[in-house]
Computed example of a mutant assay.
Amino acid sequence: MQPHHLVARAGRWYPVAWEPGRRDWRIYRADRMAVRSPGGPRFTRRELPGGDAASFVAARFKGSQGADAWPCQAGVIVHLPAGGVLPFAGDGIVEAVGPDRCRARLGSWSWNGLAAALLRFDADVEVADSPALRRAFAAVAAIATSISCLLRSFL
């Protein structure tokens, strides 16, 4: 590997490096690495996509190959006050649209993951702008039904 930066995130250190064998940027966990001696051949430093190592790591952790953005994003109306959603919205955007409803724009690594994340609010959710999220809610409902049937057979 050809090291570029060392980024701290969530209590861990992550070296960001170019991997010549894969012809791609890679992120490693420093606590899982061992020093090799000698260190390897010299190399010419490359430019990291986007230029900022912390944003690059954040984007990769979200499953994005480009900007620091979730690959699956959607706008929804959550039937809860904004104050009840905001602490759990992570890097999402939440704005009040009334005393008991808010508009939220959230993201996830997958549509099913986003649907599941929205279910944690235990409130009605209106999908504002994403047919893919509507399909994901249907898929998550089918999974929940299957699990429910399976559990009933054991009880």
Rank of each mutant, 00 (worst) to 15 (best):
M1W: 06
M1F: 07
M1R: 02
P3N: 04
H4G: 01
H4R: 00
H5S: 03
A10Q: 14
A10I: 11
A10N: 11
R12V: 14
R12K: 15
R12E: 15
R12I: 15
W13G: 12
P15Y: 12
V16K: 02
A17W: 00
A17E: 00
E19G: 00
E19R: 00
R22P: 05
R22F: 12
R23V: 10
R23N: 08
D24S: 12
D24I: 06
D24F: 13
Y28R: 00
Y28K: 00
M33F: 14
V35T: 10
R36K: 04
R36Q: 05
S37E: 04
S37M: 13
G40Y: 03
G40E: 01
G40L: 07
G40F: 05
P41N: 01
R42N: 05
T44W: 12
R46T: 10
E47C: 07
E47F: 07
P49Y: 13
G50T: 05
G50Q: 08
G51D: 12
A53H: 05
A53K: 02
A53E: 06
S55M: 11
F56A: 05
F56Y: 02
F56G: 02
V57I: 07
V57K: 01
A59W: 06
R60H: 00
F61T: 07
K62R: 09
G63T: 12
S64I: 07
Q65S: 02
G66Q: 15
A67W: 12
A67F: 14
P71A: 08
P71R: 04
P71G: 10
P71F: 09
Q73P: 06
Q73W: 11
G75Q: 09
V76M: 09
I77A: 06
V78Y: 03
V78K: 00
V78F: 08
L80F: 10
P81Q: 05
G83V: 09
L86Q: 08
L86G: 12
L86I: 14
F88I: 10
A89I: 04
G90Y: 03
D91E: 08
I93L: 10
V94H: 07
E95F: 13
A96N: 09
A96T: 08
D100F: 15
R101A: 11
R105N: 09
L106H: 13
G107T: 11
G107W: 11
S108C: 05
N112R: 11
N112P: 08
G113A: 11
L114C: 10
L114P: 14
A116I: 11
A117F: 15
L119R: 05
L119G: 04
L119C: 09
D122T: 13
A123H: 01
D124G: 14
E126W: 06
A128I: 02
D129G: 06
P131D: 07
P131Q: 06
A132P: 07
A136I: 05
F137C: 04
F137H: 01
F137S: 01
F137D: 00
A138I: 10
A139S: 10
V140P: 01
V140K: 02
A142L: 12
A144F: 15
T145K: 13
S146P: 10
I147F: 15
S148I: 08
L155P: 08
